[in-house]
Design a protein around this nucleic acid. Sequence first.
DNA 1: AGCATGCGTTCCATTCAGCGAGACGATGGC
DNA 2: GCCATCGTCTCGCTGAATGGAACGCATGCT
Lengths: 259, 259
Amino acid sequence: MTTEVSTTGRPAVDGGLHSVLAALDVLDCFTDADELGVTDIARRIGVAKSTAHRLLTTLCARGMAEKNEETGRYRLGMKLHELGSLALQRNRVHQTALPLLQELHHLTGGTVHLGVPDGGQVIYLERLVSPTAAPAFARIGRRLPGQCTSSGKAMAAFDRRIAAAQARAGFTPLTTASISSSQGYASSLAQTRRQGFAVSIDEVALGLASVAAPVLAHDGSAWAAISVVGGSKQLRGDLDRPARLVRLAAQRLAWALGI
Amino acid sequence: MTTEVSTTGRPAVDGGLHSVLAALDVLDCFTDADELGVTDIARRIGVAKSTAHRLLTTLCARGMAEKNEETGRYRLGMKLHELGSLALQRNRVHQTALPLLQELHHLTGGTVHLGVPDGGQVIYLERLVSPTAAPAFARIGRRLPGQCTSSGKAMAAFDRRIAAAQARAGFTPLTTASISSSQGYASSLAQTRRQGFAVSIDEVALGLASVAAPVLAHDGSAWAAISVVGGSKQLRGDLDRPARLVRLAAQRLAWALGI
DNA sequence: AGCATGCGTTCCATTCAGCGAGACGATGGC
DNA sequence: GCCATCGTCTCGCTGAATGGAACGCATGCT
């Protein structure tokens, strides 16, 4: 597995600690599938079956994974939720944004998102779903390619480091409307810069649209993005008001963070 | 660290995989403190400073931990939130309960909780906070000793295995009103059995009260508990209505789960 | 100012923990 | 009823993980 073994006995891999990295790779496997067997995981991470079994047993011992005794297969454990909610709760951007998001949610009545950049992708820290919104979109994951989302474009338009990371990651279109060329990407970012907010219509899922504004620090780096999601038809009809509200909320968040 | 080393070269510890267990222990350290330094963590988990540093570097490489470059200390990473929300989203009890919780939240107007048993403790999977509720209680963690919470008592009253686990864990009172003796515990469970729901007044935090009902399977095991939280004064004044509603919601959840 | 103590990081030789291969019994689809 | 495949467990070998020591750098006390 290791691309190269150092001449010394020291771990030569990116982050060190083979078995720990392997264990974390096991957890990553579950982003694709709900439940996985030992053999399947061994194949995915490229280790022997016995090694995968040992890793899983260890993860289960700490609640990071759970075993389905009926099928003998494994799934993610609730300890992850425990630690994950702790990590979120302590995130300063999330903490600070929450009241602002609630107000925005109240004013727009739409679904509101808070996203932060991670490489070329966007991780969503918070989502306030409107009870009237179609529950069909609730299945959306927690990490999306930046070029498809309004949040990703809002951040990339004003932060060249994020734009570079997105360009480096390449284009992975989610729908037929997703940006798939560097020309389309560049013009979309230019328009975002002109307007001060980003729009994504049908680019994540058909029938779904969103408006986002970046949370910018004084040094020009984008810390986060706030977005409002709605149906493509409704949002196209009334874009100005939500756009104004997300810009205001994003600016207030930047101010509240003191950045 | 290991209590005993086997005669063979095989890992003799509970779950095997020393370095993986150590890495997960590192993550557990952060339940106490927001940010920790290398030396502090090394002391806590009982390894050399260099080992703790290596573990942290590895965790950071996968986003499970993050480094505060200003202070040089470490905190939990957002990858945990990503995997944790995935684990939660896939939890069948959580999935099934969500619409029922929303209805209960709507009917009572109070803060609604969904808790599942874990040893003698209760892990809260979902919390619907009412906008009018005092935000002071939002700081409550995600894992509480079962004897103090109405959810824990509701489950223990009808599931002897959970009661045994709670008794084994001992009494860790959170306030002066918390149950601290096995007599008080037994009579509280007996009352819960008579009523069909559990009450906790000032036992988690002074001024805070809750009513809970267990989600019981046909075999008598408690899968979860649903609770409504409110101010001690309000809830003491009107206990019947919320008690009836949580019992109904819990029964409907058991039915929906087909258990 | 000077010193001392603590931090996070890096290096290195030692050795024991983790590795893969293989055997085993249980399970389930054809 | 068989064969393929699953999860689990054992075992000897070896190289990856370990602890200790050294380093540079803050911080705070004298």
